[in-house]
Amino acid sequence: MIDGILDDFFWRALIGGLGVALVAGPLGCFVVWRRLAYFGDTLAHSALLGIALSFVIQVPINVGVIITCLGLALALVLFSRSKTLATDTLLGILAHSALAIGLVTLSFMPSVRMDLTGLLFGDLLAMSRSDLWWIYGGAATILCLLALLWRGLLMSTIHEELARVEGVPVERLRLALILMFAIVIAVAMKIVGVLLITALLIIPAATARRLARTPEQMVAMAMLFGFIAVTGGLALSWELDTPAGPSVVVTAFSCFLLISAVGGKQRA
């Protein structure tokens, strides 16, 4: 039965998409709370470079993407220490350069047949069984990490210095969060494409903010809105033959507009 379902690419895409929404919810909340939207975008843009890298050093694509994201995050930390450029300028430089270098590098590899549109905007048909393993393996890792580190992460988001005084290992938690972003980008790439990953992180979280009264409620609702976006988007893509990623984002955005219109005043 399950085997039969997994033979169908639509179901594979849907199951994979739900797995991604499961982790995009909580991580998206952190992106919104810690104002990391542009940072997330920069990491996601570097994913293309990661794909090229994985062909060069002969590792699975997901591994290549995770390594590149972590490398870029490290480069950001080093560059931002010198403080000669504003952070948004620096992020802009790295985001687009990483994307451009990735595209140029891939063009040198004619033997590698890649569907570029699929990489940039997501591809419903490309979801394989091994992708599902990656998604659920990644999701399990992230959810375990979040459960373990939740109090510290929340505390250092609320007030970093107060957290430090209370003995929260703020720096290590920041690294853990970056690692989780790298993983989610590597696994979400297939569904929404590298250009739209940040949207899947931010929009459900921002939608949830209107209704939530506690951080945990916001996370749960962000997951729910993520599920709705993925299901609706894939159905749209299936029925109307629209690109998967943009369809998911359009659905998420529709939810956001709807909740903003009827949700009324922010409660807490």
């Binding site: 919104v32 709370w33 810690r34 104002r35 109090r151 929340l154 505390m155 988001t157 609320i158 007030h159 210095e161 107060l162 005084v165 209370e166 979280a205 921002a206 903010r209 939530a212 009264r213 506690t214 951080p215 409620q217 916001m218 922010q266 409660r267 807490a268």
Partner: peptide, 22 residues
């Protein structure tokens, strides 16, 4: 430690009770 201010992001819903419990 009592820091200068508590500038909480408006996007983070948080009650007094929860802040204390943390």
């Amino acid at each position: 430690y009592v820091p200068q201010t508590l500038n909480l992001e408006t996007t983070l819903p948080l009650s007094v009770e929860r802040f204390m419990a943390l």
